[in-house]
């Protein structure tokens, strides 16, 4: 099945994409409060040295997110 979105894991380093939705309701509360909103541009700065997490930039704010947390942010293709 063809996906209609990407996630942060699909981005190359320093690539950006627009967020379209945050899915998981438990995480969405936390992430939206921190400024990860639909319609914001998200840049993958780099993956964590030992993997499992991402360093991202959202509107000038820097965030560290786990893979599971990043996975619920849907990005534009």
């Amino acid at each position: 099945m063809q996906r209609r979105y990407r996630t942060i894991a699909d981005l190359k380093q320093h690539e950006s994409a627009l967020a379209i939705a945050v899915t998981d309701p438990a995480l969405a509360g936390k992430l939206t409060a921190m400024g990860v909103l639909p319609g914001t541009l998200i840049e993958l700065v780099r993956p964590a040295p030992f993997g499992n997490a991402f360093y991202i930039k959202v509107d000038g704010i820097r965030l560290a997110l786990r893979e599971e947390e990043a996975a619920c942010i849907l990005l534009e293709l």
Partner: peptide, 10 residues
């Protein structure tokens, strides 16, 4: 639930 979701300050 377990979170990392951490702001990296300037």
């Amino acid at each position: 639930p377990s979170f990392l979701a951490l702001e990296l300050p300037e």
